[in-house]
């Protein structure tokens, strides 16, 4: 097989065939590395960027919340009374799930599959508990989605967390199966770490939502 080598004006030879390396006039292929696999942590960095984008969406909603709140005479509307019991329970569960998901990654990194699976399943249960409580907070709020701007934003903010939580639960479920299958080890656990990062981000969303809705809530 002979290769057709074309040349540029600068006398640099270039390969014409798909798989031919660049060849120097000396006849030697160019020195240099073959393009390799991605560096470690690629999934984690991608997840972090995804979380950044998601945080900007949340930021837009929160900006709308504060703009409407500042313009209102009473906030929340006088007939609204939301208790702090459910959000407190969710917050405590979120903190616990933050520890348990980290336990999962930590175990996987130490090649301790048993503990890792245990931790991830525990995290999944805590996540389901949070989703359940959030649904309860919709049902028990005592106002509808369209009753007033507060109701709309209350449901959207909590719903935004619920949406992320459900995505995180699906993600973690898959990762638990992969852990059971022994996909992760001390050298290879990037996907699991990325899932954990997403889980922690979901918790950050919750803490933000709680701060906005229940801590800086009174006005007028």
């Amino acid at each position: 097989m002979s290769l057709v080598v074309s040349r540029t004006a600068d006398n640099l030879p270039v390969p014409a065939s798909d798989h031919a390396p660049i060849v120097l006039p000396s006849g030697e292929p160019l020195p240099g590395p073959v393009p390799g696999r991605p560096r470690r942590g690629t999934s984690t960095i991608g997840t972090l960027l995804l979380c950044t984008a998601s945080a900007m969406v949340l930021g837009a909603v929160i900006a709308v919340y504060f703009a409407i709140k500042e313009g209102s005479t009473t906030w929340p509307p006088s007939d609204v009374s939301v208790g702090t019991y459910i959000p407190t329970m969710i917050t405590i569960t979120a903190i616990m799930s933050g520890f348990s998901v980290h336990w999962g990654v930590y175990s996987a990194r130490r090649n301790d599959g048993r503990n890792a699976v245990m931790a991830l399943v525990l995290t999944l249960f805590l996540g389901l508990a949070m989703a359940n409580l959030e649904w309860l907070s919709f049902v028990r709020s005592g106002f509808g989605f369209n009753d007033h701007a507060y109701g709309t934003l209350y449901d959207i903010l909590i719903g935004y967390h619920l949406l992320h939580l459900l995505a995180a639960i699906v993600m973690l479920l898959v990762l638990s199966f992969r852990t059971m299958a022994g996909h992760f080890s001390g050298d290879r656990h990037d996907a699991l770490r990325a899932g954990a990062v997403y889980w922690q981000y979901t918790n950050v969303v919750w803490f933000t939502v709680v701060t906005v809705l229940f801590i800086f809530s009174r006005h007028g």
Partner: peptide, 18 residues
Amino acid sequence: MTDTTTDNQVEGEARHGA
């Protein structure tokens, strides 16, 4: 820049076996 690229094609030696 090089309109003559195609004109300049030369047969190189086979550097990989078929």
